[in-house]
């Protein structure tokens, strides 16, 4: 497990991976249990009386639909909780990938071995991508398995689609954090800025549709491309992947370029 930088990085994640799996699965179990035990239609009647702006702010542009479990997942879990978890892992892993090794000075020894800076950062990018994919897959697995166990109809294509978007959004923010880390060599700064950008992006996507004059700003938010096409209901919309892929690619190139030319003090 310790033969490459990538494997070592994933080895470091092994305990966290178990905690994340247990946490996400038990959260899903709790939600499925509670929602299977209550009358969702009564919830919906109350929510229908809320102002549209409020339901949009809470549940995103498509508002809140609590008439079914998939509606609840769409409005709550995949609007707030799942993105927080995926972005937390991606930004933390990305921000710390080069900057943390630079801060604690472990990078010196690694780069004194015959390993190029490009190889080092690419392995770290793979590590961040793998961890983010893991969290997205655990979300899909938990709701897919528990949907069957609780005899709830959660459309599997929609579940895969939103988890895939979740993954793409995660690696986009993770990649931005890696780039900030290569600029400053400061892990806290890289994680902090990456997280702040994610928060701003969330607020833009949820606030912009409330005000007509700001409506078009939602296109600048990655959260819009994540959930704007309502993937849990409508499945895959590949054109929504383009901004994620573009951002990931741009910041990947910038990160490699910046890390190659940086003086490692």
């Amino acid at each position: 497990m310790l033969s490459t930088i990538l494997l070592k990085s994933l080895w470091d994640f092994k305990k966290a991976a178990i905690y994340w799996f247990v946490g996400i699965f038990f959260l899903a179990l709790y939600i499925m249990f509670v929602l299977s035990s209550i009358e969702l239609d009564a919830f919906q009647t109350v929510l229908d009386s809320f102002p549209k702006a409020l339901t949009q702010f809470i549940g995103g542009e498509s508002g809140i639909d609590f008439s079914s479990i998939s509606g609840f997942l769409n409005a709550q879990i995949f609007t707030i909780m799942a993105p927080i978890m995926v972005i937390a892992v991606a930004v933390n892993s990305g921000g710390k990938s080069t900057a943390s090794e630079e801060t604690i000075k472990s990078l010196d020894i690694i780069l004194s071995a015959p390993i190029s800076r490009e190889s080092f950062i690419i392995q770290k990018i793979f590590s961040m991508t793998t961890k983010t994919l893991f969290i997205a897959i655990v979300h899909w697995f938990s709701y897919f398995i528990l949907g069957i166990a609780f005899s709830q109809s959660i459309p599997n294509e929609g579940l895969i689609a939103i988890c895939f978007n979740l993954f793409l959004m995660g690696i986009s923010f993770g990649m931005i954090s890696i780039f900030i880390g290569t600029l400053s060599g400061n892990a806290s700064q890289a994680v902090g800025i990456g997280g702040a950008l994610a928060l701003i992006s969330y607020l833009i996507a949820n606030i912009a549709p409330l005000v007509d004059s700001l409506n078009n700003t939602k296109y600048f938010s990655l959260f819009y491309y994540y959930k704007g096409s309502d993937p849990l209901k409508t499945g895959f919309h590949s054109w929504h992947w383009a901004p994620f892929l573009a951002i990931t690619l741009i910041f990947l190139i910038l990160s490699i370029y910046q890390f190659r030319k940086r003086n490692l003090l």
Binding site: I104, K105, S106, D108, I109, L111, S112, A113, P114, I115, S116
Partner: peptide, 16 residues
């Protein structure tokens, strides 16, 4: 890269 094959290095602030 070729040079690094020839070198053993101990930095001033070694951390594992």
């Amino acid at each position: 890269l070729e040079i690094r094959n020839l070198i053993g290095y101990l930095p001033g602030e070694f951390t594992t």
